[in-house]
Design a protein around this nucleic acid. Structure first.
Length: 461
RNA sequence: GUCCCCAUCGUCUAGUGGUCUAGGAUACCGCCCUUUCACGGCGGCGACACGGGUUCGAAUCCCGUUGGGGAUGCCA
């Protein structure tokens, strides 16, 4: 059985790159009828934030990625780690290191400069006694030989063992560290496939040594290239929306985001649109690309508009109400309004703003539009149209269209002397949804009111 | 500094030695549709980083250069 996982550290929101990693693991597990587990890597007490776990769960809920079993918190598994830690100590595969932070800093600085470190980092590797000083536990990496593994994305990966330093597996407060607990938990939780960012590629060698020390089976690793920002480097908070929930607030549909993310580093021929089912059927981590990709908003926008167009109105109405405070559920022309708008907007937020513009009488009129279309004879046309409307009762858009054309015919005037002005009267501008639909949505009384409003403002006595 | 990874249109990508005068998508531009703005339809612009090999033949294989990215923590 395939078992995958997503293992974030609770230091903040769910990152957009993290969501793609989670998606890949989720897809692979679902495709194979396997398990997708969620594990919170909270061994660093100083950095953990209480709200972060909630934020991550909320993001999972929103995107629809469901995990199997209980969430595993590493902070609750210290006993297990202690046991394995002692085992390594007893077997002589790990040792207590009494190097101070200052000494380590000096070593690190020298290494960066390319100089010979003043102290050997392995100083206490073969030290037999006990010192009455704080210590960390380091793993004894082999002094010679190669460490290799076959990466599912990048192929055979090898490193000289002596290039991997004796890494810390327990801090001076006794708590275990990432490379150690990740290996322990991946083994204990029965991971078969680990898909993660390629910033972990180096860590894999360390984790491999832990597997080897305990004689455990090694899972299959897939290191996927990072998602870069639009400039080509690692995404950070400065790049705008990196929090997954930010996309919800901006009016993106979760399936659009997922569709966008699955195509970053993975593809299936020329196909661009993937339903969740298709993703599950077609995804295979061995097809993941080696090159990093960049986040580009235009493509996301295009996908989002595609999914908005194809969403049932009912769903859109609910999202508009729940997420954007625009409640049109009881509006008698809501179908017309949504049908018109879903064809033209990129986000739900945009849709909400457009609805608001339509339903609220214009507070001001676009200057350029007024200059171009509102002339004295136009005002008198509108006045006559108001009278003309008294004997009419148009309701649906075609009826409004008929009414306008009849008026045009009767007066023998061109559309531009009635239609653009009407639109300006309704929303203050010349852009927007189909005019007949707009009039229909507003209804005869409101239309008359807004025409009168425009006349009052611009008529010359 | 050291180690590692990567390299096709601006961006996401197809492509696994001949079917490539390199395909799709997005963005951009133009035309059509249209009272407007969008949507949609049609068309256009636009790439194999460079230099050496290997081969009858290279976007595809090898080497180097350049460029970009990552790692180098008592973070994960």
């Amino acid at each position: 059985m395939v078992v995958t996982r997503f293992a974030p550290s609770p230091t903040g929101y769910l990152h957009i790159g993290g969501l793609r990693t989670a998606l890949f693991n989720w897809l692979w597990a679902r495709k194979n009828d396997g398990k997708f587990r969620l594990r919170i890597e909270d061994t660093d007490k100083e950095r953990n934030k209480k709200e972060a776990v909630d934020a991550i769960i909320k993001a999972f809920d929103w995107t629809g990625l469901n995990y199997d079993g209980e969430i595993v918190f590493q902070s609750q598994r210290e006993d297990i780690y202690k046991k394995y830690l002692n085992e390594l100590l007893e077997k002589g595969l790990a040792y207590k290191c009494y190097l101070t932070k200052e000494e380590l800093e000096a070593i690190r600085e020298a290494k960066m400069k390319g100089e010979e470190p003043p102290i050997d980092i392995r100083k206490y590797r073969d030290f037999k006694g006990e010192l009455d000083k704080p210590y960390v536990i380091r793993f004894k990496t082999p002094l010679s030989g190669k460490i290799c593994f076959e990466d599912g994305v990048k192929g055979m990966q090898c490193v000289e063992a002596n290039e991997i330093e004796d890494f810390v597996i327990a801090r001076s407060d006794g708590s275990p560290t990432y490379n150690f607990v990740a290996a322990v938990d991946d083994h204990e939780m029965g991971m078969t496939d680990i898909i993660r960012g390629d910033d972990h590629l180096r860590n894999t060698f360390k984790q491999l040594l832990i597997y080897e020390a305990f004689g455990w089976n090694v899972p299959k690793f897939y290191h996927v290239p990072m998602i870069h920002n639009e400039k080509g480097s690692k995404m950070s908070k400065r790049d705008g929306a990196v929090d997954v929930m930010e996309y919800k607030r901006e009016g993106y549909l979760p399936e659009a985001l997922l569709n966008f993310l699955v195509r970053l580093g993975w593809s299936h021929g020329d196909q661009e649109i993937f339903s969740i089912e298709e993703m599950i059927n077609l995804f295979d981590p061995k097809d993941i690309n080696k090159a990093p990709s960049r986040f580009n908003k235009e493509k996301l926008d295009w996908l989002n508009s595609h999914y908005i167009k194809n969403s049932p109105n009912e769903r859109l109405e609910k999202l508009l109400r729940d997420d954007f405070g625009i409640d049109i559920i009881n509006h008698d022309k809501k179908e017309i309004l949504i049908d018109e708008l879903k064809e033209r907007v990129k986000t739900l937020k945009e849709m909400a703003e457009e609805i608001d513009k339509i339903l609220t009488p214009p507070k001001e009129y676009n200057e350029k539009a007024v200059k171009k279309f509102i002339k004295d004879e136009v005002i008198s046309n509108l006045r006559e149209f108001l009278v003309f409307l008294n004997d009419k009762d148009p309701k649906l858009p075609p009826e409004w269209a008929d009414a306008m054309h009849e008026f045009l015919e009767m007066k023998q005037i061109k559309p531009k002397f009635l239609m653009p002005p009407l639109r300006i009267a309704m929303v203050g501008d010349t852009k927007g949804i189909d005019l007949a639909a707009l009039l229909s949505v507003l209804g005869k009384e409101e239309v008359k009111k807004r025409i009168a409003g425009l006349i009052a403002k611009f008529e010359v006595f």
